[in-house]
Design a protein around this nucleic acid. Structure first.
Lengths: 347, 347
DNA sequence: TAGCATGTGGAAAACGTTTACATCACGTGC
DNA sequence: GCACGTGATGTAAACGTTTTCCACATGCTA
């Protein structure tokens, strides 16, 4: 007969008393049920239910020496906003982690030297058992640090200049932009420009390479003035597209390393009275929510951030369970989503 | 002379040994420095630095009986994305919390009954010391629950149907849409429609009332067919705008309860060949990043989510320190940002 | 010189768990 | 009938802190 709907103040001792057993038995019932006889197990479970007992994670964590927590640092540029894809990734992570009873600890840090010290704080104070990294760089000091300290982590994205293996989940950006470029070539485009990401970002290289390789395979020259580097912001996409359109021979198609810059490109076209998908084709990367709703809707390469978040959790769990890094490296095939912002060139 | 750059494995006992004092003294040096003589203080600090000692938060938390953690649940509709404003709020929260050494625990939950049980899990297992709520509802069960359990929390937004006072930070949505409506009236509009938020959301009422009051003050009737309720998604704004434009007498101006719906409205206008800011004026709410970059740029009411996140942290800290709820209630004045999506009606 | 505040430090008891080890009863095989 | 595994439980020692007592020395007042 339940006495109190929500006491919440019961500790393991009270339960033991109520069930007439020792605290060790209570603990065993909860963690190792087959270690205890069915009769007492039943008795303990009843007592626990009666008192509304929940093991206090603070005690468990101290005893186990684990924080039961996974950390993620979102790089929030001072004043500016973090990229919205982070929220989708977070949702996937949070979902997966809560299913296995782990907590998700979120910190923000402006990119730069403070970022690393933020990671250090997290691991050196034993606040987290593992970490998830996103937006990896070619030579990512965070990864170097975590490898050196042997902290379990998984990365969303590779880090090509690091030799030691580590667990990652990436999308094949080279294949993605190779596909996209081929698609534009098939439509008849020959003058295709590329607005890339900051070169220190790991995916910047891959996406550029996909573009270059497709051009080379088609026997087309690479024109340096058509290969630009943006900072992933809408504004940057806008500016660089303006620049491209101001060239003596402007391109007829445009690849942007992320959707935000593609939105900027669309704005620049609009401002010049050019119709995207007709006068100039634009293809982005990420498939953010807004990509559905631009004018015209944006063609882009889909990144399933939510699913990737969930998969990253599985990988981190495996890593925490001792799986070798080499077996935790996945590269997913990108999907080209064609909406309205691409089309054959005007002749 | 430092012996090891990053040992990290030192506990308080080792430091005590190294400094030739008891662990109590080490603890005092760190928590209550003036309680110990300058000489030994110095000695302990040196020893701690030498060993790279950092107090283990797991031990601290157990002893203090506090999780030193603040929780926030982001309502992520299954499959769909959470609103991007959440990321900005999170960034503000994370920044403020890390400055005072508190952790931010993030969970996701689909809205609905599971949401409340998510909060229960968090507080009943003593995983967090306090909570931050966002997107409050008129009669918010989360708030009812937290008040009943006397859990410290702060809310982003009020909950009008709850009498008991609780700490909140809100923006005066009524004043905001009153301003916006007056602005449209001043421009000469008489036919102003309203696309609202789900009525269970607390701010839905306020924004509607601001619109109604401004119309009433101008002696204009409220036309029921111009007052619609959306679900805050882009798609919803699009659909409802389509509906409004299909009316025998379509409105010349449009208030949307959030920017996402306003983006949908812009898309609907575009599709009909109408120029926003000329044929039809549109004003949104939130001032999300993308509002800068639409065509035309969106006029909207600014919500400083980042700053609000930081302020919410201060308020929660005060609450945790025992400040009464009545003194922790703030309503900020909204700012109307005029970009290009509003203008005088075509005559 | 007794009495007492004050400043400084240590011993030890928490906080709530988990788990290694000890204990004990009960067959079971010889 | 005896040693002995086996299964079920209890005892107690951790985990790493903070904090409450005490103890002691010192210096001051009366």
């Amino acid at each position: 007969m339940p006495r109190n709907p929500t006491p919440t103040n019961a500790d393991i001792r009270k339960v033991a008393l109520e069930a007439g057993v020792s605290i060790a038995t209570v603990s065993r019932v909860l963690n190792n049920p087959q270690r205890v006889s069915a009769a007492t197990r039943e008795r303990v479970l009843e007592a626990a239910a009666r008192l509304g007992y929940r093991p206090n994670p603070l005690g468990q964590r101290l005893r186990k020496g684990r924080a039961e927590t996974v950390g993620v640092v979102i790089p929030a540029p001072q004043g500016r906003f973090a990229d919205s894809f982070f929220l989708e990734l977070l949702a996937g992570l949070g979902e997966g982690l809560s299913e296995v009873g782990l907590d998700l600890l979120v910190t923000t840090s402006p990119p730069g030297p403070q970022e690393l010290s933020c990671y250090q704080r997290l691991v050196e104070s034993k606040r987290v058992d593992g970490l998830v990294l996103a937006r990896t760089r070619r030579l990512d000091e965070r990864i170097v640090y975590l490898l050196k300290r042997k902290i379990p982590f998984v990365a969303h994205g590779r880090s090509d200049l690091i030799d030691e293996p580590f667990p990652y989940l990436d999308i094949d950006g080279e294949q993605g932009f190779h596909k996209a470029t081929q698609h534009l070539l098939n439509l008849g485009h020959r003058d295709i420009a590329f607005i890339g990401a900051p070169h220190e970002l790991n995916f910047a290289q891959h996406r550029l390479k996909g573009y270059q390789r497709a051009l080379a395979e088609a026997g087309l020259p690479l024109r340096a003035e058509w290969v630009l580097e943006g900072d992933l912001s809408e504004e940057s996409g806008y500016q660089l597209t303006q620049a491209l359109l101001g060239l003596p021979q402007p391109p007829t198609a445009l690849l942007c390393a992320n959707d935000l810059m593609a939105l900027g490109a669309l704005r620049a076209l609009r401002e010049r009275g050019l119709k995207a998908g007709r006068e100039v084709s634009v293809i982005g990367y990420d498939d953010i929510l807004l990509a559905h709703y631009t004018d015209p809707p944006l063609s882009t390469l889909h990144q399933p951030f939510h699913a990737m978040g969930r998969r990253l959790v599985e990988m981190l769990l495996a890593r925490l369970g001792g799986a070798p890094a080499e077996e935790l490296q996945e590269i997913w095939v990108p999907e080209l989503i064609l909406r309205g912002s691409d089309g054959p060139p005007q002749s």
